[in-house]
Write a protein that binds this DNA or RNA. Structure first.
Lengths: 224, 224
DNA sequence: ACAAAAGTGTTGACTTTACACCCATGG
DNA sequence: CCATGGGTGTAAAGTCAACACTTTTGT
């Protein structure tokens, strides 16, 4: 392959992450505001150009750190976006990730070189986003929803102990759906993701609730 | 973003597809042999560099056409690979796809500009592959297996009518697992992917078998 | 008439769903 | 002592896995 061929000259790779949290029953996503052209002043998902000396996952995490100050976040790649005109500057494809984090445990930076502000937005009050980030965010949400029903992706929100009513609220917020208290408990326990800690704590009720925690190892169940 | 910054100069994008078929109960993948360095003489999956004037899916299809002559193939993006050293020439990320096609319906080209030969390989007799294509192929297979249990991805192998014993053999070949005849039938019909054509045909038995076909519209079922 | 593969039905185990009742605590 | 949410149980409907018998044809 010839580097000089105009057919594939000046290409680049974005690594973009939709970082979600849930606060008081509301699903939110972290956005940053661009300081420079293109899309100056617009909100976008965290991300930026991949460097030559880093793998995709590392690049995505570096960008998260640079734009928000967040470290120690687990991310999961879900799709790559590559419409010809998705960036007005040059030909870029965007490798997109989702991440989940407890917003109360992180202090988000307000000012970086390329972005001013960084803030959590309720997913049903999203402003217009720059680049193709609205499309990316929409697909990120679909992916997030598909993941929480069978994986321990919510572990980031509940790294330690939690009660079932508490985590149920989070499921309901993300899936935008209500569940029967008793059936939810049975189903969740059946997924084999969490275990009883034999301790109790408080959530909303006056009666103490049992505390659970995510298991160390998880196994997935199969169709067929 | 400055195009000249060495941190992200000279990057490129590969679009790679693992094309599968099933012949007489054996799952096979289409490989081509490289004519030029790097990896001259090695077998690899079909693919190549994305052009600036095409979307990702189009690029993947163009590469398939150029390397094998195959047109009219449905492909599905499943993951992007981006280890720093995955290509010795320059920094490339590979957007990977899977596709399924009936090998008996296509005539695969044997000679192109960059590749000589193009042939079907049983997935348990894969030669060493160039670049990181062994890793891509391994993940492609996992993805393929996850897809056939709930989608109409096998439609490409059975575009028209087929019998249940016939398609069962294909499922068994891909999943490398045997199923009970009666339960397989019930489960498959329950997936709501196929419908009775009210016609009959022959497969292996002497008794005529009912002919089915994939439905036009498919709906997916949910957990939670 | 029989071998060989195709089609159908039943049963028991397990899940899922929809409910109703008791429990522990703070006020 | 009672309101509030937390915990548990049960019955009906549905799914899943294992298995046996009948049907249609070619020879």
């Amino acid at each position: 392959m010839k580097k000089s061929n105009a057919l594939y000259k000046n290409q680049g790779i974005h690594v973009i992450t939709a970082i979600f949290t849930v606060e008081q029953g509301v699903t939110k996503v972290l956005l940053v505001k661009r300081k420079n052209e293109p899309y100056k002043g617009d909100w976008i998902l965290t991300g930026g150009a991949l460097y030559n000396n880093e793998d995709l996952d590392s690049g995505a995490k570096r960008e998260i750190y640079e734009k928000t100050g967040i470290t120690d976040i687990d991310i999961e790649q879900f799709k790559t976006f590559g419409k010809v005109d998705r960036s007005p500057v040059m030909r870029m494809v965007a490798v997109a990730y989702i991440g989940v984090i407890d917003s109360s445990r992180v202090k988000v930076l307000r000012e970086t070189i390329n972005t001013s502000n960084a803030d959590w937005f309720s997913i049903d009050k999203i402003p217009g986003l720059g680049f193709d980030h609205e499309e990316i965010l929409a697909e990120a949400l679909v992916y997030l929803r598909s993941k929480i029903v069978s994986t321990d992706i919510l572990k980031a929100l509940f790294p330690n102990e939690f009660t079932i009513p508490e985590i149920q609220k989070t499921y309901e917020a993300i899936l935008n759906k209500k569940f029967d208290r008793r059936n939810f408990r049975k189903k969740l326990l059946n997924l084999d993701l969490i275990e009883d800690t034999k301790r109790t704590g408080k959530f909303e009720g006056k009666k103490p609730a049992k505390l659970y925690k995510f298991k160390k190892k998880i196994k997935t169940k199969n169709v067929f």
